[in-house]
Amino acid sequence: MIRVEGLAKNFGGFQAVKGVSFTANEGEIFGIAGPNGAGKSTIVKMLSTILSPSSGEAEINGLDIRRDAQEIRRIIGYLPEEPRVYDYLSGRSFLRFFANIYGIRDTDRRIQEMLKFVGLLEHAGRKIGDYSKGMKQRISIARALLHDPEVLILDEPTMGLDPASARELREKVLGLRDEGKTILICTHYMDEADFLCDKLAILNQGKIAAIGKPEALKARVGKKRYVSVVLEETAGDRERKFVRLLKARQRGRAILVEAADTGLAIKRIHDASKACGVRMLSIRNVEPSLDDAFIEFTRGH
């Protein structure tokens, strides 16, 4: 279990984390989402005992992050934001180095297990320097799991991975949760947070803007439904006029029109398309997503 109470961190005059509190229960995936610079990594580094907090308290499985730092490092598996690896070592030697430091018994069997788990068994003899970014991330995950930690702290675990590898990794994280591990995960992919997290804190400028189950967070912005419209590509200036007229938001090719009443909104959209002389390729209802919650709670950033 991870219990955080009023945790804060200052770097000189800059307050990166401003009194954050949350609890992640055993066997639960707790997510921290937020825009870049919101303080996600700082929280993770404090919980991993790499940084010491300026104020506040935090406990991991009853151990205090200040007093019992050494013991905490034994029971956590920490995956930094980017793979931290020795390029000149082979995957197997890299794991052996960490296995020796953790004093793992039956090292060879455990390394074999981990290589299999992250799908690198065939590449174990190759130098890490020759690995792709995804493979480096996978060997780092094997490193973080090597000593069978009770608590996993993962900072942006799928960043830079291709969609298939990312999906595979998420499945593995769910599997680890099912084994009873407590998992803290930092991400700025909302679909990932939605898929993985039992509980989620949305962080903005060092403070928790919202916290709760993903469904609950979605429900909180749920009153706002949208209709998404895609116009023909040649619309140009007329498209801009169309957006202005409907007071809509543009996200990629899609134009999102706020719709308290969907029927009324569709009528307004039709009127506007006629007025602006644009042709619609598609029009559909959009259910609120965690993305909307994220945008809503971090607005003004």
Partner: peptide, 14 residues
């Protein structure tokens, strides 16, 4: 340079 120290500092060694 390779930010390996961050990984080392998360190990149970002072």
């Amino acid at each position: 340079e390779n930010k390996m120290l961050e990984a080392l500092f998360s190990l149970p060694i002072d």
